[in-house]
């Protein structure tokens, strides 16, 4: 996480917890619009190499970003096909505090 500008550092940053998430995809619903891949704030997603039955490349985890999902839910809400969502990872399953 980028360090906030001097003077704008939240007082509770030491205690702040970054939520961790897991990405779930329903490949057969995907139409490869790219909204989730394009607008994931953590660049977690990439297009699959293979395609679904209709020929669309669905989202997969980008190389090196497999653990980067913060469960913000943006990919979920922006998906026109309801083909992707995230669930929150429990702390003991890899959640971290910064």
């Amino acid at each position: 996480m980028a360090e906030p500008a001097p003077g704008r550092r939240p007082m509770d940053l030491d205690r702040a917890r970054t939520t961790r998430g897991t990405v779930h995809v329903i490949p057969e619903r995907c139409k490869e619009c790219g909204f989730c891949v394009g607008y994931c704030p953590e660049d977690v997603l990439a297009f699959s190499a293979d395609s679904n039955a209709k020929g669309y490349h669905y989202p997969v985890l980008a190389s090196g970003r497999e653990d980067a999902c913060v469960h913000c839910g943006f990919c979920n809400l922006i998906c026109p096909e309801l083909a992707i969502f995230t669930t929150e990872l429990a702390d003991d399953a890899g959640g971290t505090t910064s």
Binding site: T22, V23, H24, V25, I26, P27, R29, L45, A46, F47, S48, A49, H57, P59, V60, L61, A62, S63, R65, E66, L82, A83, I84, F85
Partner: peptide, 15 residues
Amino acid sequence: MSGSAPIIASTHPND
């Protein structure tokens, strides 16, 4: 254009 597979689901929580 590739990466590791996410968890594959068959339903969405809002279904």
